[in-house]
Structures are given as structure tokens and as C-alpha cells.
Amino acid sequence: MMTETPILSVRDLSVSFAQFDRTISAVHTASFDVARGEVLGIVGESGAGKSLTSMAIVGLIPPPGYIEATSITLEGRPIHNLGPKEIRSVRGRDIGVIFQDPLTSLDPLFTIGDQLIETICTHLPLTVPEARSRAIDLLIEVGIPAPEQRLQSYPHELSGGMRQRVVIALALCAEPKLVIADEPTTALDVSIQAQIIALLLRLCRERGMSIILVTHDMGVIAEAADRVAVMYAGRIVEVGKTRQVVKNARHPYTRGLMGAIPKIGQPRTKLAQISGSMPRPGTEFEGCAFAERCAVAEAKCRSLRPQLLTVDDSYVACHVAASGVGA
């Protein structure tokens, strides 16, 4: 894929939840790389395991969930088997995280300034006044007007978009190399969404930072991501350059996703949809998880699980795509 060492390299990451009588596997053997300065989109419908995948990287899977991986490396350094203390210093310092809902991501009882300074002081050896001036710089960088007054504000005094900017500033406190943005725009209205995405891309460009952008919105991916990983039922089914995947999707599920995006300027036809629904986590399959909903499924699809294989420039886990292109 890349010649230089990727910022993040994930091999065979699985996330499972132990129940009383069985173990439910929510993410199966996901593998991917994130290059320096790259925006990797992870897309999929609700419950596909995209958020879990991204949270597993920073060890934020609540019990009874647990993580198994061959390796997760951050700039070549393994981080999948760190103790609680070490992984905590990775979180926030090396990897910043942004959550979906800015309305609930901030502690309602502390000012923006308190929360920023607290986070800065946790990771950097600064005095409180120094941390304060850094907090102001960060707020300026994420485009918050009158930052000095804003430090005094409580979260409820800011709008949703402003709060998401504060959340981004909090994620940037210690200059992380990688930011994991879990549905960063889902809770915002459309015009604010565009601003937040533009802000993330600008930060990524200016700081040489990498971003993992988790979303179910193919439009956001098409606009922002360099590469995209498509997840279905806990597995990565297709990985490729965004342009490639958007224009020329190989996996029937990805094609289905693309078909479900409304296009402006075209006559109003009924939007294509994928019939049926994704199997619930914990359902076990012999073959391809998508076979039941797939229009081009063959007999082999139901009996043999497809592996992620190179097809042109992308990686696709599909028997039909693998053979269909060659033939």
C-alpha cells in the first residue's frame, strides 16, 4: 500500500462481547493502515462495527467487550497490548478522539477553559497560565470568536457547532498525530457539518495530522476522505481510494450504498435501496454476510467466506468481484 511506515497499522483486530452463555463477535479481523496526513474514511450502516473498530484502537471498549489483535502499531510502536496507564497516555497525546454528539461530550458543570486547561496540563508540562494561553490559541485555531471570553463559558452557553469546535480543540490539546473522529457531524445540521468537515481537513493539512473519519454518510466520505474502508456486519468488505470506490465500487454492498445517494440535477427517480437488513451481530455465517441481500450472489457466496483480495487498486472481499473482473 504505502512505502513509508504508516502512522497507524491495524492487523486482525477483533472486538467481542462476552455474554453469559456465548461470545458475540462484533468486529472480525479488521486490518487497515493510515498513512501520514491521510484521511481514512470508515463507512457502514449502524451496527456494522465501524465505531467499535475505531474505539478499539484507543482501548475504549467498555467491559464486557474485549479486543484481540495480531498487532496495532502507532508509528511502528505496538499499542494493542499496553496496560491501562500506558494506553491512557496514548489517548489524548498521540491519538485524539472526537465523538458524535457535542451536546453531551462536555462536562456541563465545568467551563470550557477548565476542561481545556485540565486536558492540556494532563499531557504537557505546562503551568496553568501557559496552558491557558495555549487553550486560547487552540480556540482561535478551531475558529471560535472571542476565545478569551469563551474560556469563561459553560458548555450550555454555546451552540452545537461551537461545542463541536471546542471538542475538536480538546482533541488537539497535545498535538496528536492521529485524530479519530467518530461521526463528528451526525448531530449537526447540514451547513455546520460542512464547516466542521472543512475545519478537520484544514487541520489535517496544516498539521500533517491523519484522521480516521467514521461515518455512515457516503457524501461526507466522498468529500473528505482520501481512502475509504467499507464495513459490513463487522467485517471490512472493501478498501480503496475514495475516487475509485465512489466511481467504480467493486463490492455489491458498496455499489448499493452509492446507489442510495441522491444526486442533485438528475430527474427524480426512486432512490435505489438495498432490500433486507444487516444480520445482527452474533449471527454466524459460513459464507459472505451480505449474500442474503446480494443481487449477484452465487452458490459459493453462501458456503465460503470471501477474503479481502486485491482487485485493481482496491481490496475487496467478494467472490463475484474477484472472479467477475478477471473473467
Partner: peptide, 22 residues
């Protein structure tokens, strides 16, 4: 269980600080 506690963990704040302050 709330989101802001999760976000504080994600920011790498110490567990003791999260529990006893926030």
C-alpha cells in the same frame, strides 16, 4: 455511563480525576 465521561477517558485524563472531580 455518560458521553462526557467517555470523552474524558478518550482525552487521557486520569481515572481518579474523572471519577472524583467530574
Amino acid at each position: 455511563r455518560s458521553d462526557f465521561i467517555k470523552f474524558q477517558h478518550a482525552r487521557g485524563l486520569s481515572t481518579r480525576r474523572i471519577h472524583f472531580r467530574h
